[in-house]
Deep mutational scan, measured.
Amino acid sequence: NDEAKKEAEKLWKNNKSEDEIKERLERAGISPDEAEQWLQELR
């Protein structure tokens, strides 16, 4: 999970869309709710 979150953070810094980041997190096995929460922390 931490690995996926690091990846999400990297994508965020590269200005990827939130949808793309969420999709990537969900593919890594993170629930949509958790993915949404993680994005809010990044904002």
Rank of each mutant, 00 (worst) to 15 (best):
E18P: 08
G29K: 02
E36V: 02
N1R: 15
K6P: 01
E18L: 11
R24Q: 12
E41K: 09
S31Y: 02
W38P: 00
S17D: 06
E41A: 09
E41R: 10
L11M: 15
N14E: 15
E36A: 07
I21T: 02
A28K: 06
D2W: 13
S31V: 03
L11P: 00
L11K: 04
N1P: 13
W12N: 14
N1Y: 14
W38F: 12
R43G: 05
N15H: 11
E34N: 03
Q37I: 07
E7S: 05
I21R: 04
K13W: 13
N15W: 01
K13N: 11
E41Y: 08
K22N: 01
E3V: 11
R27G: 05
E36K: 02
E9Y: 09
E26I: 14
E18H: 09
A35R: 02
L25V: 03
L25K: 00
L11S: 07
L39R: 00
L39T: 00
N15R: 05
D19H: 10
E18I: 12
D33L: 11
G29P: 01
E34A: 07
E41H: 11
E26Q: 12
I30D: 02
I30W: 07
A4V: 10
Q40T: 09
I30H: 02
A8D: 04
L42H: 03
N14R: 01
E36F: 05
N14V: 03
K6C: 15
E36L: 08
W12Q: 14
R43N: 04
S31Q: 07
E26G: 10
K6W: 06
E26C: 15
L42C: 10
N14Q: 15
E18N: 05
S31I: 02
Q40F: 01
E9L: 08
E34S: 03
A4L: 15
W12S: 14
K13S: 09
E41L: 08
L39K: 00
P32Y: 07
A28S: 07
E9N: 03
Q37H: 06
W38Y: 08
N14K: 08
L42F: 13
A4T: 06
L42N: 01
A35Q: 07
R24C: 15
E26D: 05
R27K: 10
E23Q: 10
L39A: 01
L11F: 04
A8Q: 00
W38A: 02
L11H: 08
Q37D: 08
K13A: 13
S17Y: 03
G29D: 04
N14A: 13
K10G: 05
E41P: 00
E18M: 12
A35E: 00
E36H: 03
E23K: 08
W12P: 14
E7W: 13
W12K: 13
E3I: 12
K22A: 01
N14I: 04
N14L: 10
K5C: 15
K10Q: 12
L39I: 12
W38T: 04
N1G: 10
E3F: 10
L42D: 00
R27T: 07
W38N: 01
I30K: 02
G29A: 01
A4G: 06
E7I: 12
N14T: 12
K10F: 12
I21E: 02
L42V: 03
K22H: 03
G29M: 03
E3M: 11
G29T: 02
R43F: 09
L39Y: 03
E7L: 15
N15A: 08
E9K: 08
E20K: 01
E20S: 03
A4H: 05
K13E: 15
E3C: 15
D2H: 12
A35V: 14
N15T: 04
K22Y: 05
K16Y: 15
E18R: 04
